[in-house]
């Protein structure tokens, strides 16, 4: 359940931003999470409900923008969608690849009231 640590990280970021903006509550938060980030969305939801109580995110709507992973083949340069980290190149079959996107774990924005 490392998702609890993830939520604690989100709250820490939000509390720093709240202090800067001089607000006590946020109405919404937008997160960007790639499908290779290692975060289980359901586990995140579960941890979220427990952790945000009494924080600046208590009443905030959580919008998760899922990012589809993409990789570039190390042998033939083909760019392809990645579902699992062990997916290989659909063109040449190589497992050598660099991940272009999909590992994101980011707080994109916060909305104030």
């Amino acid at each position: 359940m490392h998702e609890m640590s993830i939520v604690m990280g989100i709250i820490k970021i939000a509390e720093n931003e709240a202090a800067k903006a001089n607000v006590t509550q946020f109405s919404a938060i937008d997160l960007e999470i790639g499908n290779l980030s290692g975060v289980e969305y359901e586990a995140l939801d579960f941890a979220w409900n427990v952790a945000v109580e009494g924080t600046v995110l208590e009443n905030a709507t959580k919008n998760v923008h899922k990012i589809q992973a993409k990789a570039q083949c190390g042998d033939c340069d083909t760019i392809f969608d990645v579902q699992y980290i062990y997916d290989n190149c659909p063109k040449c079959g190589s497992y050598f690849k660099s991940i272009l996107q999909g590992k994101e774990l980011r707080v994109k924005s916060l909305d104030t009231y």
Binding site: I6, G9, I10, K12, I13, E17, A21, S27, L31, L105, R106, V107, K108, S109, L110, D111, T112, Y113
Partner: peptide
């Protein structure tokens, strides 16, 4: 409505 959006763009694991 004085609501506005703060662009944060921060990695959640940034502290670690």
């Amino acid at each position: 409505s004085h609501s506005h959006t703060i662009d944060v763009e921060k990695n959640i694991l940034q502290f670690n």
